[in-house]
Each structure stands twice: as structure tokens, then as C-alpha cells.
Lab assay of single mutants.
Amino acid sequence: GHYRIRINGREFEIRGISEEEIRHLEEALRNGADEKILKEIVDRLRG
């Protein structure tokens, strides 16, 4: 998958993330885990 997200007015492209991972992120966001989720995304993109 290849997705664009906007955070604090800046747009980011996220590549190589699966539909299942996105559902997991959405679930966590609904549970209020904003900073933790951003850290997970950044860590994943770093490799």
C-alpha cells in the first residue's frame, strides 16, 4: 500500500504498509494513542 497522511499541516507519504496495519493504527487512534502511533509509524519507516 501507498498512502498520504497529513500531520500538523505537513503531508507525508507512507509506503509499504498493509491494510491490516492500517486497521490496527485506526483502532489505536480511536483509543487515543496519538503520540505512540506516530512513533510506531516513524520507527517503521526508519526500517
Results as ranks from 00 to 15, higher is better:
Glu13Pro: 01
Gly1Gln: 05
Asp43Trp: 02
Arg30Ser: 11
Leu45Tyr: 10
Glu35Val: 10
Val42Met: 09
Gly1Ser: 04
Leu45Met: 10
Ser18Val: 03
Glu35Gly: 07
Ile37Lys: 09
His2Gln: 05
Glu11His: 04
Leu25Val: 06
Asn31Ala: 11
Leu38Glu: 01
His2Thr: 08
Ile37Gln: 11
Ile14Val: 05
Glu20Tyr: 09
Asn8Leu: 05
Arg10Val: 15
Ile14Trp: 02
Gly16Met: 06
Ile41Gln: 02
Arg30Thr: 08
Lys39Cys: 14
Asn31Lys: 11
Lys39His: 11
Arg46Gln: 15
Arg6Ile: 15
Glu13Ile: 15
Arg10Tyr: 13
Glu27Lys: 09
Glu40Trp: 15
Arg46Tyr: 09
Ser18Asp: 04
Leu45Asp: 02
Lys39Pro: 02
Ile7Ala: 00
Glu26Lys: 06
Val42Phe: 13
Asn31Gln: 08
Ile22Asp: 01
His24Trp: 15
Glu13Asn: 04
Phe12Gly: 00
Gly32Phe: 07
Lys39Arg: 14
Ile7Trp: 07
Gly9Pro: 00
Glu19Leu: 14
Arg30His: 09
Arg6Val: 15
Arg30Ala: 12
Glu20Asn: 08
Gly1Ala: 04
Arg6Pro: 01
Glu40Leu: 14
Arg6Glu: 06
Ala28Gln: 09
Glu13Leu: 10
Gly32Ala: 06
Arg6Lys: 10
Ile5Asn: 01
Glu21Arg: 03
Lys36Thr: 11
Glu11Cys: 14
Ile14Gly: 00
Phe12Pro: 00
Gly47Leu: 14
Arg30Gly: 07
Gly32Tyr: 08
Leu38His: 01
Ser18Pro: 04
Glu11Trp: 15
Lys39Ile: 15
Leu29His: 03
Gly9His: 01
Ser18Glu: 03
Asp43Ile: 12
Val42Asn: 03
Arg15Pro: 07
Gly9Ser: 02
Asp34Phe: 15
Arg30Gln: 09
Asn31Glu: 09
Glu19Ser: 10
Asn31His: 07
Asp34Ser: 14
His2Met: 08
Glu35Gln: 06
Leu45Pro: 02
Glu11Phe: 09
Arg30Lys: 10
Gly32Trp: 07
Arg4Lys: 13
Leu29Val: 14
Ser18His: 04
Leu25Asp: 00
Leu29Arg: 04
Phe12Leu: 03
Leu25Phe: 05
Ile41Trp: 13
Arg46Ile: 15
Val42Lys: 02
Asn31Tyr: 10
His24Arg: 11
Glu35Pro: 11
Tyr3His: 03
Tyr3Asn: 02
Ile41Leu: 11
Glu40Val: 10
Glu26Arg: 06
Ile37Thr: 14
Arg30Asn: 09
Ala28Leu: 15
Asn8Val: 01
Arg23Gly: 10
Asn31Val: 08
Arg15Gln: 07
Ile22Pro: 00
Arg15Asn: 05
Arg23Ala: 13
Ile22Arg: 04
Tyr3Trp: 08
